[in-house]
Nucleic acid binder design. Structure first.
Length: 630
RNA sequence: GGCCUCGUAGCUCAGUUGUAUAGAGCAUCAGAUUCCGGUUCUGAGUGUCGCGGGUUAGAGUCCCGCCGAGGUCACCA
């Protein structure tokens, strides 16, 4: 049941609110009438939940369908007769809403009066942000953490999914009337950074992004790989030595992994880092800055941004205080070796380490510290972590710990858990060189878009090289983003690098194309001096296709709400696709500019404009731009 | 082994809080439009919705069991 919220609509004038009330919602009016009808016909009041209205299937006449099965126990009649009773009642009680009805088995199909649809369209046209809930100072404050990269390698396809989902989810939450703070926690400390640093010192010969011409993040990634190669060679050699001395193979490898000089050096470096050794710290800052410059480029290309960035090098110490506090209060306990643990067996989970025996932090400690800082900085009502589903357990534990430590949003924190991106032969593995690099992927998509539309672009008069490039960027990224966002976030998804992403069918460019085509029509209409401002004519006969288009437009509100409730941006993608398909059918069957009846023409222009607006806003929620021409 | 997630057409995926004959795209074939714009539209065919029970007037959807895939259960992050 869809009920439009009209309270607190700050941007609507009083007059507009009244207008909205009058067309409030066709479904709402029918629901009320049905409730009254049931009471009058069968002498019983029923809960509103029982009134189940759905869109009528295209093969039947009508716009809305009432499911009558729930009323049978009250009416004590056959489904057909009950539907007949109710239909008759509705036509007599609210003729301005329901003009006709028909009965198919237990389904009452209702034909809504055309004037209702025109009023609805008018309403949609008047609201710049139709379907969006307003935001006020009192709106809940939602913080969304996403991206969260390590600073030892460039971003890959998995990060792309994370970033796109995080950005889209933030937009969806905003559209649902929340104040949103987008945040990023950068994992800038730890053994993995030291590995890159060490390898650069040993094999780098002072190479920099400037001297190498590489993006900073890629340069660091190169040395991370170099470390790994040298380290594995050492392990292999050392293990062979141990086995020659009579040790078992497995044991030898394990020992070699611990004893290899490189890993020992890396550990030494980490200790120095923790001790604030000036040299190590200086190198660390320098190399991290290279990485950040690289990340910024990728983020910019993806069109994502953050309001506040946290660094684990700042937060990991904060967590220790919180753990000590929990220890004082008896939530945690210390083992004889000095390590600190949380006993979660009451909650059906295991015991969890919070501080090592040497007093240093682990992952969980850092997340607690980050939470502390965040709560100091913002009065958060809800916290959403966009992190892959491999960390489900971690967040289950984190939620319990934060709750125990007194974070009011800890218990209800949302782990927006998304699935992995798989390749045709399984997961991405850096060791096998199957990692799909984010920058490469973006460049390839834009290149494809440019190639695919090269000959078509020529048809667009007066398009400069720069404009053509901008269109290719929008379309290429649109294809990539839509491809990823249209699938349910929590499912694993498949990406085949061999096959380029489609530009036809259920794709971003298909939707963008429809938008561009509508804009073209509107430009031509404007050139002819036709505008759609003012009141729409109500005495026009609407075709079925036009009605179902208006009905689809109206569904945008519900799609946004659904996406927000389920934390599921793919709702929006699917909605946009359905809307566009509906419009294309309309476009195929009816002409806008060549329509001779002026009233119909104006109405169709208004309809087209409304569709273009909803496409733009809908794709906008997904972070997808639309071109005026393509 | 414990816990979590997923299983829908050849492939990639939809399927709102249960409801009519389970849908799109890609690919294949046939047609329409050639115009407001050439990424458009229409039609054709494939389904044990993993399997088996249960609840219900009604189950792809909810419950239980099994099978299969993935994840996780580190003094890694």
């Amino acid at each position: 049941m869809v009920v439009k919220k009209i309270k607190n609509r700050t941007f609507a004038s009083a007059k507009k609110q009244k207008q909205e009330l009058s067309i409030m919602s066709i479904e709402k009016k029918i629901t009320e009438a049905v409730l009254a009808g049931v009471e009058k016909l069968y002498g019983q009041t029923v809960p509103e939940k029982m009134v189940q209205l759905q869109e009528t299937r295209p093969e039947f006449e009508g716009n809305l369908t009432l499911v009558v099965f729930p009323f049978l126990k009250i009416s004590r009649k056959k489904p057909e007769d009950t539907a007949q009773d109710l239909g008759q009642y509705l036509v007599e009680a609210v003729p301005e809403v329901v003009s006709r009805f028909s009965v198919v088995k237990g389904f009452l199909n209702l034909v809504v009066a055309p004037a209702q649809w025109v009023a609805m369209l008018q309403d949609i046209c008047q609201q710049e942000k139709f379907g969006f809930q307003p935001i006020t100072d009192k709106s809940p404050l939602v913080m969304i953490e996403y991206s969260s990269p390590n600073t030892n390698k460039p971003l890959h396809l998995g990060h792309v999914r994370n970033n796109l989902l995080g950005w889209a989810l933030a937009n969806v939450m905003e559209a649902n009337g929340n104040r949103v703070v987008k945040t990023n926690i950068v994992n800038d400390r730890g053994i993995h950074i030291c590995k890159s640093m060490l390898a650069w010192l040993k094999y780098g010969n002072g190479e920099t992004p400037e001297t190498s011409g590489m993006k900073g993040d890629h340069l660091i990634g190169k040395y991370y790989v170099a470390f790994d190669q040298h380290y594995r060679a050492e392990v292999k050699q050392l293990a062979a030595q141990y086995t020659a001395e009579g040790m078992g193979e497995e044991e030898a490898t394990e020992k070699a992994k611990q004893e290899a000089p490189l890993i020992k050096e890396a550990h030494d470096m980490l200790v120095k880092w923790e001790q604030n050794d000036p040299e190590v710290r200086a190198l660390w800052s320098r190399m991290n800055d290279w990485v950040y410059a690289g990340f910024d480029e990728t983020y910019k290309a993806l069109g994502v941004a953050f309001d506040k960035i946290y660094y684990e090098s700042n937060t990991y110490l904060e967590g220790k205080d919180k753990v000590e506090e929990g220890l004082q209060k008896g939530f945690f306990y210390r083992r004889p070796d000095g390590s600190v643990w949380a006993d979660l067996t009451q909650e059906g989970l295991d015991e969890k380490l919070l501080l090592r025996s040497d007093g240093t932090s682990v992952y969980m400690t850092q997340d607690i510290g980050t939470a502390k800082l965040r709560f100091q900085d913002f009065p958060i009502d809800k916290m959403i972590y966009v992190v892959g589903n491999e960390q489900n357990y971690h967040f289950q534990v984190l939620s319990i710990l934060l709750d125990k430590l007194g974070f009011k949003w800890g218990k209800d924190l949302v782990h927006f858990s998304y699935g992995m991106v798989e390749l045709p032969n399984g997961k991405m593995k850096s060791r096998e060189g199957t990692v799909v690099d984010a920058d490469d992927l973006i460049a390839a998509m834009i290149g494809d878009a440019r190639e695919m539309s090269a000959d078509k672009m020529k048809k667009l008069d007066g398009l400069t090289e720069e404009e053509a490039g901008e269109i290719a960027r929008i379309v290429g990224l649109g294809a990539l983003k839509y491809f990823i966002l249209k699938v349910d976030a929590r499912k694993n998804m498949l990406f085949n690098p061999e096959e380029s992403i489609d530009f036809n069918g259920n794709t971003g460019p298909f939707i963008q194309y429809t938008y561009a085509r509508i804009r073209s029509i509107l430009r031509k209409a404007a050139a002819e001096g036709i505008t759609v401002s003012g009141t729409l004519p109500t005495d026009v006969e609407l075709a079925d296709k036009e009605i179902s288009l208006i009905q689809h437009l109206n569904g945008f509100t519900a799609a946004i709400r659904q996406a927000g409730m389920d934390y599921n941006p793919s709702c929006i993608a699917n909605y946009c696709y359905e809307l566009v398909k509906e419009y294309n059918q309309f476009y195929h069957d009816f002409s806008v500019l060549k329509e001779e009846d002026e009233k119909k023409k104006v109405l169709r222009l208004a309809l087209s404009e409304a569709v273009s607006k909803v496409i733009k806003n809908g794709l906008g929620l997904l972070g997808i731009e639309v071109p005026e021409r393509m």
